[in-house]
């Protein structure tokens, strides 16, 4: 199975600097639908689904490989290699921010910029570090996923109604975006929320932008500050947008912040 099929890669056919968008836990590449089109004017945009989400090949899932975020970072690098991407602007939301950090550490020369939307290197409180959640919160969240994935809930209705082969039969009745395989999603949730990448941040040399929302229940302001402090030469933008998904709730503000960062950097390089 090719990498492009495996990750349901959608690539724009134009000769420009590549911009690779990576979605977070709980969704798929659809979550870039209000942001990516704007950049398609002057970048070669590439969208994909992590294995287990959206239109990816579920059969490619492997609990060992995807037992750490590094497995997902390897996929990002494989996509880059397959498409011969250089000077990549990597845009990662939520957990994919850290996936991008890992990829950039592995092959620094491949990435020109990192845009980290709502990043968190560690979701669990640890001494002075304010991750936002206790281990108990995370365990409860993992348990409660069954309520939506296996119970009578919209997200998983097609599986329950016995049409796993023909999801289109369930699509009319249910939430049609961001469907996900329940077992994979649960494992991804565990890997995401129990990851700790704080030690990786200081090693990053790629210029990066931290986009921090107000009132983000997943990655609080203090976490964004932490990421900014530990990423050498990073920029922090505190957005007016609230919640965890400014790419959906405030696409215009997100685009503007990204363009400011990318534009300024370009000028600096030129001067």
């Amino acid at each position: 199975m090719g990498v492009l099929t495996r990750n349901n890669v959608k690539v724009q056919d134009q000769d420009a600097q590549p911009m690779l968008f990576a979605h977070g836990f709980g969704c798929d590449q659809n979550m870039w639908r209000f942001v990516a089109p704007d950049f398609a004017r002057d970048y070669r945009t590439i969208l994909f689904d992590h294995v287990g989400a959206g239109g990816s090949e579920l059969s490619a899932y492997n609990r060992t490989k995807y037992g750490t975020l590094r497995g997902y970072a390897d996929d990002v690098l494989e996509i880059c290699r397959e498409l011969h991407l250089e000077q990549v602007v990597f845009v990662g939301h939520s957990v994919s921010a850290m996936i991008g950090v890992l990829a950039a550490l592995e092959e620094p020369e491949r990435f020109s910029r990192l845009v980290l939307v709502g990043p968190s290197p560690c979701y669990i409180n640890d001494g002075e570090y304010p991750g936002g959640f206790t281990p108990m919160d995370i365990e409860q969240m993992l348990e409660s996923l069954d309520d939506n994935y296996l119970g009578w809930s919209s997200t998983m209705a097609p599986m329950i109604m016995g049409n796993p082969d023909r999801p289109e039969l369930g699509a009319e009745l249910t939430n049609s975006f961001c469907r996900t395989h329940p077992e994979i999603a649960k494992h991804f949730a565990r890997v995401t929320f129990l990851s700790d990448n704080r030690a990786d941040l200081p090693k990053v040399r790629t210029p990066s932008l931290v986009l921090q929302c107000s009132n983000d229940p997943i990655a609080a302001h203090a976490v964004g500050e932490y990421v900014h402090r530990h990423l050498a030469g990073s920029e922090l933008v505190l957005m007016k947008a609230t919640g965890h998904c400014p790419n959906l709730s405030a696409p215009a503000e997100t685009i503007a912040a990204m363009r400011a960062f990318l534009g300024v950097r370009a000028n600096r390089v030129a001067s």
């Binding site: 709980g26 919160d137 969240m141 929320f193 997943i218 998904c245």
Partner: peptide, 22 residues
């Protein structure tokens, strides 16, 4: 707390993308 995570990672994005959530 568990619900907040689900709300932010599933409910809110879905609502914004498709205009409804069931």
């Amino acid at each position: 707390m568990a619900g907040r995570i689900y709300h932010e990672t599933h409910y809110a994005p879905l609502l914004q993308m498709q205009g409804f959530v069931r």
